[in-house]
Design a protein around this nucleic acid. Sequence first.
DNA 1: CCTACCGATCGGTAGG
DNA 2: CCTACCGATCGGTAGG
Lengths: 228, 228
Amino acid sequence: MARPTSADSAASNESPPRSRPSATEAGAATAAKLRVEARALFAERGFSGASLGEICSRVGIRKPSLYNHFSSKEALFLDLLQRAIDDWGKASPPPSTEGGPLREQLELHLRTLVGFAVERPHAAALCRVAVSQVGGALEGKVRDLLQGHRREYQKILEELFREAKNRGEVVDMDVNALVYSWLTFVDGVMSHQLFGYGRRRQEFLEHLDPMWKLYWRGISPDPTEVGL
Amino acid sequence: MARPTSADSAASNESPPRSRPSATEAGAATAAKLRVEARALFAERGFSGASLGEICSRVGIRKPSLYNHFSSKEALFLDLLQRAIDDWGKASPPPSTEGGPLREQLELHLRTLVGFAVERPHAAALCRVAVSQVGGALEGKVRDLLQGHRREYQKILEELFREAKNRGEVVDMDVNALVYSWLTFVDGVMSHQLFGYGRRRQEFLEHLDPMWKLYWRGISPDPTEVGL
DNA sequence: CCTACCGATCGGTAGG
DNA sequence: CCTACCGATCGGTAGG
């Protein structure tokens, strides 16, 4: 995240504004604005519920002009999804066995995952919309994008937990069960963050710390030493 | 669940077929068919992505005839959502402090929750679609339905964990943290079940047992006694 | 339950 | 980047 700006205003590859923008720079700026508004509207209404007309209206251009930047509604959505996945991955690098004790690695990783959803709510919500987009025309392409990322993530977790188990940093248990346990915990936390409403979301965030401790207690090699 | 039939073919209030159906019986049968197909299509494509024309086509009637049974697309969706919530609640009665040890209560409850998603995938997916329906016209009404149910569920859990804590059946910790921990665990499990794809879903189900044990280990008053 | 039809809006194109 | 416009489809109504 280049700038500490709020709520998804930052796209992946924005350039700072100049005093006299060239034609290509103006075009890039329009494309960036389109991405911001499209991301927000897709996140709020889903793929079919968001209309290109409204996106363009929010940017201040007419609908046909959008096709100078994106070849179709589907292409626009997939572009945004790819960026959201990439940005999320960059903001939350997977934990490594080299980085230190498993407990600290996992806790940090959890916090960066949640942090992305807090700082980039529209990008996170777009991923949620994509996951929910099980039917319809772009089903296959969305699934490919998401599954590729998920498979890679799962493989990293398998290695992480296998090594941690060998070092006695985690309870002695089937590695796959440990991986699924982590995925379930993360998905549960993200569900609250992505689907929760208003106050609930904030209230939930305040309980992240004790929830993490209870999770760690479950997979810790020595639960009695986990301070609660 | 009255009949052990597969995949959501059973609506909430179907009556068994007779040899010579009256006019009102035929009408009720049509309404039931409409619910089955609408539930499947809403679940697959979302609210905006599903069209009344296709629903009617699957049932074998013309679009205007739908309005003899439901006053609008929105009313149809809300009817289905209400039924899905009710059915899920009936199939998964919340755990009670009277019913026995907390551990057994929670495990049984978890299995009935997952069982509903397995036996009634379209009803469960409709709830997922509704939760995702954060924007658009029916935002407020959907939220009211879901929040009402959620609040009630959360209150029951608070009482459950408070009493269990007093009896020493659960780790000594803030009751709210225990409640949120349970909600997170359940949401994580449901995420896999509702959003998962094909083989993954099955593979995940096979790990439900060890995942449950790891969860219980985290909130158990004596984790060392949890057999893994 | 049907045919016939409504205005609105959709994603996208032609052409400049 | 625009105006003008396309065919298709949408939810819903009139009238029987």
